[in-house]
Design a protein around this nucleic acid. Structure first.
Length: 427
RNA sequence: GUGGCCGUAGCUCACCGGGUAGAGCACCGGAUUGUGACUCCGGAGGUAGCGGGUUCAAGACCCGUCGGCCACCCCA
């Protein structure tokens, strides 16, 4: 093996996998279009400060996971670790926020982490963001959109919705103080990671996986008790609407999300089928971010889904059907026959733009060409040899089980080939 | 950043201190003249991740290193 290998955590998506990817991408694009969302494409690289000021300076992402570098002018740039910051920046800078906007984007994100199942350094997200609508019906729409997509992909049974409200900044700060106060009195019962979080990001302690810590939290102050009326009614309206449509969810009071910009609604679609990586899709409301990044006070909600994780889920369910490499495989013996075959094949491609018609290349005996025809999965082989050239015909061989009474091989005049193929596919 | 498991043919894996390192699948060729699959026959393909050590002898044991997977952490 050469030492010129791919960078750790940056995977090639191989030909055997791209059908699954395309399947997911098409389904997503379809569903998004049906809800009226428009695509936006942003650069992969942004100024480092953009991420520092949006994601939150003390988050792991900004502290140790960003691919940052100085460009030739000495300005610090960063390969985007997530999409929301760039999308907000673009929306502000390009003046998209005069009226409500429904946007989506897809593409690679970069985070310097140890790779594991469902997690790599270059990974792909599809992000959906809504700007300008402060009411909970907007949050609802986004969640319904997800639900529709899971149905569409056939993975609805594998994911479930976790929901919470983390209120506005003042109530979160008040709660944070109460939580820290409570935990500081019980420092000895806290695990090491949680102790570290006590100064940096106390809310994250809530979703610690440590059992002792979780037990400790049962008696801790509850975030829900600190929400103001606005956040409370926003959340209950969201729940009402979800109930009305019949989307089931679990209110998870410990769900706080990692990025600083969220307020009010946060949600996560989780699965137990991807090892340690439970979150397939996650997001929430971020009413303050546009203002914080230099725009007007425009409310917003959004979420992102992890393509790799969706594809993994889909593959576990085996619901992507594979297509044969070719529908028709063209073989020939002799250079004159190959010439005839080439011309006829080109005409067939015009007549049947949706079929995959492969003409054998690279020579070899007719036998070896026929082997290739079989392996390609094609239903028909078209054969040109000396005899066919001599009488302007082509031999059509049916390679698969087909309609009763169908001959295994027939010889037709070249000018009747199109008609023959058409009738084969009609039946 | 920490921990566990693992690097032998294109792929999945055997052999687990001793002869020229094997199998299945895949690949190539042949089994009648111009015809696939199934079957049979034949062939090609490996400095056993890399470096060092122990030993009369190492793919197997030890150390290091690189790479992979999984988990912690974090997150989509």
């Amino acid at each position: 093996m050469s030492e010129l290998t791919a960078i750790r955590g940056m995977n090639d998506i191989l030909p055997s996998e791209t059908p699954s990817w395309q399947y997911v991408e098409r389904a997503v694009e379809n569903v998004l279009a049906s809800y009226g969302y428009a695509e936006i494409r942003m650069p992969l690289v942004e100024k480092t400060a953009l991420f520092q000021r949006s994601i939150g300076a003390v988050t792991d992402i900004v502290e140790k996971e960003m691919y940052s570098f100085d460009d030739r002018n000495g300005d610090s740039m960063t390969l985007r670790p997530e999409g929301t910051a760039g999308c907000v920046r673009a929306a502000i800078q390009r003046g998209l926020l005069g009226s409500p906007q429904r946007l989506w984007y897809a593409g690679p994100m970069f985070r310097y982490e140890r790779p594991q199942k469902g997690r790599q350094r270059q990974f792909h997200q599809i992000g959906v963001e809504s700007f300008g609508v402060p009411t909970p019906d907007m949050d609802t729409e986004l969640i319904l959109l997800c639900d529709r997509l899971w149905q569409r992909l056939g993975i609805a049974d594998s994911v479930s919705l976790q929901l919470n409200s983390i209120g506005n900044l003042p109530s979160r700060e008040a709660y944070r103080d109460a939580l820290v106060c409570y935990l500081e009195k019980r420092l000895d019962q806290l695990d090491e990671d949680s102790r570290r979080r006590l100064d940096s990001n106390p809310l994250r302690i809530l979703d610690s996986k440590n059992k002792a810590t979780q037990a400790l939290l049962c008696e801790a102050p509850r975030l829900a008790d600190y929400l103001d009326d606005d956040a409370r009614s926003h959340f209950s309206r969201l729940c009402d609407l979800l109930d009305a449509v019949g989307v089931s969810y679990t209110v998870n009071e410990r769900l706080v999300r990692g990025l600083d910009y969220y307020n009010k609604t946060v949600f996560e679609w989780v699965t137990d089928q991807l090892g340690a990586q439970g979150a397939v899709c996650a997001g929430g409301r971020y009413d303050g971010l546009v203002l914080q990044l230099g725009g007007k006070a425009v409310p917003a909600v959004g979420f992102a889904m992890g393509m790799e994780r969706l594809v993994l889920l889909l593959q576990e369910h085996g619901s992507v059907q594979e297509r044969p490499e070719a529908d028709i495989y063209v073989v020939s013996a002799g250079s004159e026959a190959q010439r005839e075959a080439l011309v006829a094949t080109q005409a067939l491609r015009v007549a049947f733009p949706d079929l995959c018609i492969q003409q054998h290349v690279g020579g070899g005996s007719l036998k070896s060409q026929m082997k290739k025809a079989d392996k390609s999965g094609a239903s028909l082989a078209l054969i040109w040899g000396e005899d066919e050239v001599a009488d302007n015909s082509v031999s059509v061989k049916f390679l698969r089980e087909n309609a009763v009474g169908q001959a295994r091989q027939i010889n037709v005049a070249t000018n009747r080939l199109e008609k023959t193929v058409r009738s084969f596919y009609a039946s």
